[in-house]
Design a protein around this nucleic acid. Sequence first.
DNA 1: TGCGAAACGCGACGCGAGTCGCATTAAGAT
DNA 2: ATCTTAATGCGACTCGCGTCGCGTTTCGCA
Lengths: 205, 205
Amino acid sequence: MSEESRTPSPRPGGRSARVRTEVVTATLAEVTEKGYDGLTVDAVAARSGVHKATLYRRWGGVDGLVAEALTASADQPWPLPDTGDLAGDLRLITREVFAVFTDPDLGPTPTALIAAAQRSDTGATALRAFFTARHRQAATVAERAIERGELPAGTDGAEVVRAATAPLYYRLFVSGEPLDARTAERAADAAALAARAGLFAPEAD
Amino acid sequence: MSEESRTPSPRPGGRSARVRTEVVTATLAEVTEKGYDGLTVDAVAARSGVHKATLYRRWGGVDGLVAEALTASADQPWPLPDTGDLAGDLRLITREVFAVFTDPDLGPTPTALIAAAQRSDTGATALRAFFTARHRQAATVAERAIERGELPAGTDGAEVVRAATAPLYYRLFVSGEPLDARTAERAADAAALAARAGLFAPEAD
DNA sequence: TGCGAAACGCGACGCGAGTCGCATTAAGAT
DNA sequence: ATCTTAATGCGACTCGCGTCGCGTTTCGCA
């Protein structure tokens, strides 16, 4: 949402829009094939047909390209489970995260994007926005649990989702320890348990 | 400890050992001052007095330097709390993590090291060994809780520690969302709750 | 104490990322 | 339809990372 609205510059329509689309597509393809360390501005320029100088002028370098790709990816919807049970929903969410990042076809792209985004301020900002949007979407499962009376009112749904998925991301991107389906389930169950105990409601002081 | 023992190569003692020490010191100093993106082999060479070509020959580049520094840091002991209560111990651990990484003086070094290690296989291996050692040490608080009867026998102590600290690392290095002391406490309490419920014991199927 | 070899110092080179000034295209307004 | 100018295309240039060949030091050993 709001891709064209944030345009204080005099002339953002027309050719520029097409260039942007081409560049985003090329960046995603390159980062998927080569990984982040193999991602070069020259390669994106060659694949997209956009001149190298233009890429540096508009995006400043590899960082900006990744941030642009991340922003474009943030808007895409995410399938949310609805099993009628909080623990069940959280298990499906963690299982989905587990499946995506360990899949040899799907995994490299988001993995490279996340790793790349940590290296620059622009990328970090885009990544943060990306996860904030994801959490906001996924918080729905907690809100439904509140309506069912499964969770206390005032529970921070996004925080519940974070608690469930954090152990997965922690292993994937920080400690580097192996991740299996068993761990994913355990993380979901632990988050559901803590949420039911009211740990993620503000009055639980 | 054990710096000279792991030497299968023909001639690792003497001058090489001194060079290694100088390089590790210089690498840590550089990465603290400039961050990872500002870390160059030339700077380490200039600061350590070791020639650039030697650094490339022995460590292969920036990745190897960071891995060496990480390995050297992994052996250092970590102060463990002992409050007589699992939740209290975990709170102090998460508070310690929170304090270290948000401190403007202490934070940059481990932050840069972790970010750097994610970019190469050698760094990732060293980082994984680092965290495995940390978890092994910190698991003591869970083992003491088992002895007190606070946790079921067979509880995976390292997993309890991971569950407590994961939300912190997740925010710091993945999502980039802000981290505060309140969140640190909540993560510790949630982990303690799940551990008491037996979620981290193998027979809890 | 003297010898062979491994490790290091040294300087020059190749190569690719990133920048700059100018020409060209096309978007938006009249 | 035409004009203004923002946006892009274009190629040459600079600069720093990483490498290579050779001379020198010093470690390990007899």
